[in-house]
Amino acid sequence: MKDLDKLIEIAFDGDESAQAALMAASSYDQREELQSLVDLKQGLRKLREVPECQLTTERLRSAVLRSAAPRRPQRFPLWYAPLAAAAAFGAFLLLKGNPQQDRPISLNTVASRQPQAKQPVAPSVDRSEDSVAATEPANPIVVPEDQTSNSPVAFRSKSERVPRHRSVSDAEEIKNAVKVANEFGIRAEKTEALVTGGSGGASTKEASMPAAPAGSGLREASLAGAPAMVVVTDTKSPETGAASAKEVSVPRDVVFGG
């Protein structure tokens, strides 16, 4: 009985060092009892954190009524509607504008008219397969090779872009692979080239790499029969204490080592 009293005293009044010392010194049963007492203490603490409004149904009802959002004033009075419609119509006519502005711009005037031309969106990180990776140079105007000098400026649509061999998600996978490869002594410049897609100096790898393959469609087709994959990461789940796993339905860009 005295032991239990001592355990209670340490669990409720003692500091963590005293608890740890007792944990290390005592028997298994005592440790179990001490742990349950510490849990009980924490449970009691949590009990105090229950919102007051949840303690009785009457208080809950009044809390709900008090917390009801006030009616918001009408932001857009109805008498504005005709005026807004007229303004929208005027804006439409204004934007439609002079049809001469739609004429193609010759290459001779590109430099001075460039700000008016439709600018391609700046390169951004996009994980989709057809996207342009962040390392692609920002070239505002792309002229197909077979165009003559006086042909109109043309922009390649997204679907017309040459699919790149590696997407951003590829690079992430390869970074992991390279991390392991480095442990096996792979050269640094080679790994850099692998991640960035750059030349990275003359290496047999770059010389022997095939040209950019046809788009992702073929790769999807080649993966049609591949089973779903579980990627076991090296980060631990705080809830379970085990590594976090993620399911990948189409293992398109997953790199395997073997």
Binding site: D170, E173, I174, A177, V178, A181, F184, G185, I186, L194, K205, P213, A214, G215, L218, R219, S222, L223, A226, P251, R252, D253, V254, V255, F256, G257, G258
Partner: peptide
């Protein structure tokens, strides 16, 4: 070896450990 999906059926070799 490190390998991944290729544009055609097979496994594309990404890296070969020295």
């Amino acid at each position: 070896l490190f390998f991944k999906a290729s544009a055609e059926p097979g496994a594309l070799i990404e890296e070969v450990l020295a």
